[in-house]
Nucleic acid binder design. Structure first.
Lengths: 159, 159
DNA sequence: GCACAGTCACTGCACGAAGCAGTGACTGTG
DNA sequence: CACAGTCACTGCTTCGTGCAGTGACTGTGC
């Protein structure tokens, strides 16, 4: 049974390469949709129902509201999303993903999803449970790590 | 036992969010190092010994050699890498990562690696084997999907 | 041994994405 | 009804990247 230190070492070696291929895939999907990686990121946040508020989206993307306004302009021009006025507060706006373009997004993910689905089918219940749990934790850990890194951004390492 | 269709559906829902958090983490690490995501990607390629050829690195990053020259300029100025002349062919160059800065990179990854290591320690052999195999396949699949997307980039979807 | 095409890294120029700072519309509170 | 706060939006600037062209160098054919 491998101990924790060995596992951490393995993870340290594997993780960066894994992250890199993931980023590369994400970028390729974005290119195919004709958008930047940040725009794709935004699209997925909206599409998966995390939020539809521009200010909140800007925060999640690490952008200023000004930059996000331009991003919205581009995405609306590309017919990926539309701006919907908020009936309760006329300062506000809601961002809605256009279903017809979402199909394209799903399509671009399909080859990867399909291959991974095949792979998953070779696992038994316990293995699947471990995997699902691990992926959920990884997502949370990555988000947390990203947030922590952003928070302490100014100055510490600069040298 | 869940069938393949169900698994693919689950994967389709989970994957984009997982990819997004990963990208977000990668971007945060890059910001902390004071480099762009592309530069970090390059750094990892060099550091992990994939290649040290500028032309090859540019290809892997999806950049032109011109753009890559600028990228190298910035990374060399940031003391992340250095240009080393190739003794065999005086047109050529080799890119070498600076070990002292590589420690910082490892450090930035450490929190994530640590948490995932802890999680891994709760799994048994069969579960670990499944996970390792799945991650390896995912990396390969993501790379392949990215390459395919890049290859067929021009025109098909544009409408 | 010498010209010549090919390769490699590097340099103007242009464009696009994003930060910063400021503006105008709108909200809720005293 | 005045006033501070919020929200999205607009100049201006900076920076990363693509494109096209340049100069140094290589190996091959004559």
């Amino acid at each position: 049974m491998p101990n924790q230190r060995e596992l951490a070492t393995t993870a340290a070696l594997t993780l960066p390469r894994f992250v890199s291929s993931t980023v590369r895939f994400h970028t390729a999907v974005a290119d195919r949709l004709g958008v930047t990686p940040a725009e794709l990121h935004c699209l997925q946040l909206v599409h998966s129902g995390v939020t539809d508020s521009p200010t909140e989206l800007a925060r999640l993307l690490g952008l200023t509201t000004g930059a996000f306004t331009r991003l919205l302009d581009r995405m609306e021009r590309a017919r990926l999303v539309e701006r919907v006025p908020d009936p309760g507060d006329r300062r506000r706006l809601r961002v809605r993903a256009r279903p017809e373009r979402m199909a394209e997004l799903t399509e671009l993910y399909a080859p990867l999803v399909g291959r991974l689905g095949e792979k998953l089918a070779t696992f038994d219940r316990r293995q699947l449970a471990a995997l699902v749990s691990f992926l959920a934790d990884s997502e949370a850990a990555a988000d947390r790590a990203a947030t922590e890194l952003r928070r302490g951004e100014s100055g510490e390492i600069a040298g």
